[in-house]
Write a protein that binds this DNA or RNA. Structure first.
Lengths: 143, 143
DNA sequence: GTAACCTCTACAGCGACTGTAGAGGCAAGG
DNA sequence: CCTTGCCTCTACAGTCGCTGTAGAGGTTAC
């Protein structure tokens, strides 16, 4: 049971079957050996790598950063400044997004509580959207 | 000065030139009249509509919701329940994202403070990514 | 044996734009 | 009038990170 099919690798890693193949195409995962019938066979290290990838993706690392991280993970003797920097960059980004989302949250709350459930002509939701001045200034876009 | 070119409409609305044309193609903005030379000419109402679109996009409404909102905005006598519901949906989504990002923030903070700036082999950043159990359970994906 | 399910490749599609190429419009200075 | 330089035009390809599809073949349970 050391070698598992792509479906089981998907179940164990939490990465979808199609996504695993996609990662292979992108070079994030090495092409595994195949069975006689041509099916991919994955070992424990492949699944660990998939979990690493999934966790990093969940944290918001993009695929370029992911490639860097995987490269670093494969060189245990290198200094870890790079990984540290990548994590710090992510932290800055995550905080920026949180701030932007909190501004949106309070604007949406205000819009909703002000809405009298009347006609559209008096709807605070519509009005707020039409008049940007109602909110606390231009908010950062999230993308 | 009632009729302005696309470049000025972009400056006044904060929506890029290419994006304005893109919105026209998607039907979010009506095709404007043209000058003798074939250039688009926008009026004040177009710019207001662009600002409405931009504000709603900034708040995270997708283009389908945006089409609904624009439709509603054009029917002032309709009840505003729909707009209210759209805003409430957005609020739920925004809060979900904030929660997920806060979990990421604390995990990244932990990773960074635990990192000793040593070799990769001892780097908490890499280790955390390899071992999902370190964090407070599976976090929601943001997409 | 056969039904049910899994996996294969190759490629198109998603959302919401962004970027490019190559051509033509337009206002100001000489 | 001509040039310079920016603005705008159309049409279409590319971005990111997948997801979905079609049609074929492998594998497993009964």
């Amino acid at each position: 049971m050391r070698e598992v099919t792509i479906g089981e690798a998907a179940r164990e890693s939490g990465v979808k079957v199609t996504t695993i193949r996609f990662y292979e195409g992108r070079g994030l995962l090495p092409a595994p050996p195949r069975s006689d019938g041509g099916q991919r066979l994955y070992g424990a290290d492949d699944i660990a790598r998939l979990r690493f990838i999934r966790h990093a993706r969940d944290l918001g690392f993009d695929m370029a950063a992911l490639a860097d991280l995987l490269d670093l993970a494969g060189h245990p003797d290198a200094p870890c400044d790079n990984a540290d920097r990548l994590a710090r960059d992510r932290l800055v980004d995550v905080r920026r997004r949180i701030d932007a989302l909190r501004a949106l949250e309070s604007e949406l709350e205000r819009m909703i509580t002000a809405c009298q459930h009347d006609r559209v002509a008096r709807c605070a939701v519509i009005e707020s959207l039409a008049d940007h001045a109602h909110c606390g200034g231009p908010h950062a876009r999230l993308d």
